[in-house]
């Protein structure tokens, strides 16, 4: 039945379904964050809207939509309006190639691209434009400082992140995301690539600009960083982009290091594989929130020093060792 549909329609349906799922997931990641943070701080979090606060995201969405959309008079109107869309666009585009489970006819994804992991990195590297252009276009000093920081931080940590992942690519000898997962059917890459995994986790937190690397919007110094001037739905778009990026890097960590949909009895059962995948992603998301509830923000110079002087050399070392081992033994 599915084969009878034209390709473009199939892709459109897949994309629409995935879009709805991702946006819903975003909303509930946000709620989960508020809840978990509250519990860690001996509070109870949102609990008035719906049972256990489960309708809070809907209330928030309504609030976002009906708030006034302000544009500062010093802003560059075109780019100011464009930036949130770049942020969300690049955040969502990564889901075009992320596979979620292995079916009979191939992986469950919108497109199974051979250079899948490269595609994800290419797209997420574009995400920094949303932030940097937003900060510049606001025509205000705090956003500009926030965006300059964001740019420096994201391009610094992107290097170490890519380096840490190249080890996985070498070991799997493929850049296809489903291929990498298949290569982990016996042993998850978290074991041989434990250093790479550690570096990936740290850089992923930095790439998504979250605590303890949320220098971009450091409230105590920069008001709200790059989105200080944004309000209403445009601010909401940045919010969506941040959380979707968080889900993306969690998906990627699952695919690259935790064996994706591999798990006991998952072979030949796509739904079970999907369940494993989702559980692993949720574990990562929880870890993110947990970090936010625990660690204070790094000082900016320490952040940069840590990225360039610790993570990058470690990632290079990891890559070198992996390359030698792969060249000799495989």
């Amino acid at each position: 039945m599915i084969d009878a549909l034209p390709l473009w329609l199939l892709v459109a349906i897949k994309s629409l379904v995935l879009l709805i799922i991702v946006i819903t997931l975003f909303a509930y990641t946000m709620l989960a964050e508020r809840k978990v943070l509250a519990y860690m701080q001996l509070r109870v979090g949102p609990n008035k809207v719906g049972p256990w606060g489960l309708l809070q995201p809907a209330a928030d969405a309504v609030k976002m939509i009906f708030k006034e959309d302000l544009t500062p008079s010093t802003a560059d109107p075109l780019i100011y309006r464009l930036a949130p869309f770049i942020a969300v666009f690049t955040a969502l585009l990564a889901y075009a190639v992320i596979p979620f489970s292995q079916g009979e006819h191939g992986p469950w994804s919108i497109a199974n691209v051979n250079a899948g992991i490269l595609f994800v990195f290419a797209i997420t590297s574009m995400g920094v434009y949303g932030i940097s252009l937003a900060g510049w276009a606001s025509g205000s000093k705090y956003p500009l400082l926030g965006s300059v920081r964001a740019t420096a931080q994201m391009i610094s940590y992107e290097l170490a992140m890519t380096m840490s992942v190249i080890g996985v690519i070498l070991q799997a000898s493929t850049t296809s995301l489903s291929g990498i997962v298949e290569a982990q059917s016996r042993l998850w890459f978290i074991v041989p690539q434990c250093l790479g995994f550690l570096i990936y986790i740290i850089t992923a937190v930095a790439e998504t600009n979250r605590v303890p690397f949320d220098l971009v919007e450091a409230e105590s110094e920069l008001v709200a960083g790059f989105h200080t001037e944004y309000s209403g739905l445009r601010f909401g778009l940045f919010f969506i982009a941040e959380y979707i990026n968080m889900i993306t890097v969690s998906c990627l960590a699952t695919l690259l290091f935790l064996g994706g949909w591999n798990g006991p009895g998952a072979a030949g059962h796509p739904l079970l594989g999907l369940l494993y995948f989702v559980i692993k992603v949720f574990a990562f998301l929880f870890f993110y929130i947990w970090l936010r509830g625990t660690l204070p923000r790094l000082r900016y110079d320490r952040l940069m020093a840590f990225g360039w002087k610790v993570l990058l050399p470690l990632a290079t070392l990891n890559l070198l060792v992996t390359a030698i081992v792969v060249a000799l033994w495989y």
């Binding site: 490269l118 990195f121 290419a122 797209i123 574009m126 940097s132 510049w136 300059v148 391009i155």
Partner: peptide
């Protein structure tokens, strides 16, 4: 992919960085 990673993701963002500063 390399075109986007290298040029858009690294070089051009440095342009933005310098221009913004």
């Amino acid at each position: 992919m390399i075109q986007i990673i290298v040029y858009s993701g690294a070089i051009l963002i440095l342009f933005v960085f310098v221009i913004a500063l």
